[in-house]
């Protein structure tokens, strides 16, 4: 099956910047992910060996860099943040269990990073990321008018922000943020490993 990033139209005419800029965005819509919800979702995920965070609006990363984000009491987003994807794909294919409801996740997803990433957030989002004292928060908020889910993650000395949004808002959100990032001396960075027009079978 061929998959295509919701941001692919942008990439067709993309002008990428180099790493090391003050603020950058990287498309990662291609990552393998699934959503589930329902009264049996927590035990089902635990039975599959995923690390399930307990408080709502928090997340956990396991040793294979699999993210489990708890979006509510019984709703989850599971995503392979790196190349280790088998457990996520396998779980997605087994998502037909009583009390566990599949949630289709065809998000536009990207990472926002760089030393001035928080400045970009202060211009575009009314959520105080800097003063959120939780160690692994999942923030559902609005960014330039579009609903987003954000997971901040420490990366060395800075924080990177993983952002997911409805794919129909993806192009608007991405283009707007890239434009602001460019004004700050940054922009979008290419992902040589993961083509945005990636064919998978």
């Amino acid at each position: 099956m061929t998959r295509r990033s919701p941001l692919a139209d942008w990439h067709l005419q993309a002008s990428y910047c180099c790493a090391g800029v003050p603020v950058w965005l990287q498309d990662c819509s291609w990552r393998q992910r699934f959503g589930c919800k329902g009264p049996e979702a927590t035990p089902w995920l635990e039975a599959l060996g995923f690390t399930v965070p307990q408080p709502a609006n928090s997340c956990a990363f396991d040793a294979n860099d699999i993210l489990v984000a708890r979006l509510g009491t019984t709703e989850f987003l599971v995503e392979a943040m790196s190349a280790t994807t088998q457990s996520v794909i396998a779980a997605r294919e087994r998502l037909s269990v009583p009390g566990v409801y599949p949630v289709i996740r065809q998000d536009a997803a990207f990472i926002l990073g760089g030393p001035r990433a928080t400045d970009l957030l202060l211009e575009t989002c009314s959520y105080p990321f800097a003063s959120d004292a939780r160690s692994t928060p999942v923030v559902m908020t609005s960014m330039v008018g579009a609903g987003v889910t954000v997971v901040p993650r420490r990366a060395g000395e800075t924080t990177e922000f993983n952002v997911w949004c409805d794919p129909s808002f993806g192009l608007y959100l991405w283009s707007t943020l890239v434009e602001i990032a460019q004004e700050m001396g940054g922009g979008a960075i290419a992902d040589g490993q993961q083509s945005t027009l990636r064919g998978e079978s």
Binding site: A8, D9, L12, T124, V144, S168, L171, Y172
Partner: peptide, 14 residues
């Protein structure tokens, strides 16, 4: 400033 007026498009816009 920038007009933050969200616009939705299907994936077939191009």
């Amino acid at each position: 400033g920038r007009s933050f007026s969200p616009e939705r498009a299907t994936q077939l816009a191009g």
